[in-house]
Amino acid sequence: MKATIRDVARLAEVSISTVSRVMNAPETVVASKRDRVLEAIRQLQYQPNAFARGLIYKKSFTLGLLIPDIENLYYAGIIRGMQDACNKLGYSLMISNTDRDQERMLAYIDAFHEKQVDGIVLASDRLYPEYHERLTRCRIPFVLLSTHSDEHEVPSIEVDDEAAAYDAVKFLIDLGHREIGMIGFSHHDSIAGPPRYAGFVRALAETGLEDNAGRVKNANHRFEEAYQAAHELFTAYPSLTAVFCVADEFAMGTISYLKDRNILVPGQVSVIGFDNLRMAGMFIPKLTTIAQPIYELGYRAAEKLHELLTTGKVEVLREKMPHRLIVRESSRERGAP
Rank of each mutant, 00 (worst) to 15 (best):
P337F: 12
N72K: 06
C245M: 10
N97S: 11
V201G: 01
I263K: 03
K115W: 02
D167E: 07
K88R: 15
I5R: 14
E158N: 13
S239Q: 08
R215D: 06
H177S: 14
A280F: 00
V117Q: 03
L309G: 11
L93D: 01
R261Q: 11
F51P: 01
V22Y: 03
Q116F: 10
N24C: 08
A76T: 15
E27N: 10
E153V: 05
D150N: 11
G54T: 15
A3P: 15
A40C: 10
A236S: 11
Y295L: 08
G176C: 13
Y295H: 09
L305N: 00
F223R: 07
Y197V: 07
I41D: 00
L258S: 01
I70R: 02
A76Q: 05
R261D: 13
E153C: 07
A247L: 13
Y74S: 07
M279Y: 08
R278N: 09
Y46L: 10
M82C: 13
Y46V: 14
V154C: 05
Q228E: 13
P238H: 08
L135I: 08
Q116H: 09
E333P: 03
R222Q: 05
Y131V: 03
L204A: 02
G81P: 04
L240Q: 04
I255R: 00
F250N: 01
I326S: 08
Y295F: 12
T288H: 09
R202C: 02
M321T: 04
G199Q: 02
E162D: 13
G81S: 00
T18L: 06
E153L: 05
K217R: 12
E307N: 12
V201L: 04
I109L: 13
T4G: 05
D260Q: 15
I109T: 07
Y295Q: 04
S331N: 14
V8H: 14
A76V: 07
E249V: 09
V246I: 04
L172Q: 02
M105W: 07
V8Q: 10
A164K: 09
E162R: 13
K33S: 09
G119Y: 00
R42Y: 05
S149I: 03
S156E: 07
A242W: 07
D275S: 04
G64H: 13
R324N: 10
A31S: 12
A230C: 11
I120E: 14
V22I: 07
M279S: 01
R104Q: 15
I263M: 04
D84V: 12
V8S: 04
I67S: 02
Y108S: 12
N87D: 15
P194L: 00
K115N: 05
N212S: 02
V22A: 04
G214Q: 11
E307S: 03
V316T: 12
K304D: 04
R126T: 15
E210F: 06
P322G: 02
A291M: 11
H132S: 11
F283D: 00
S186R: 15
A52R: 14
C245D: 10
S146P: 05
S256K: 04
N97V: 03
G90R: 13
T311C: 11
K259R: 07
D189S: 13
Y46R: 03
H148W: 15
I120Q: 14
D69W: 05
D211C: 07
T147I: 10
A229S: 11
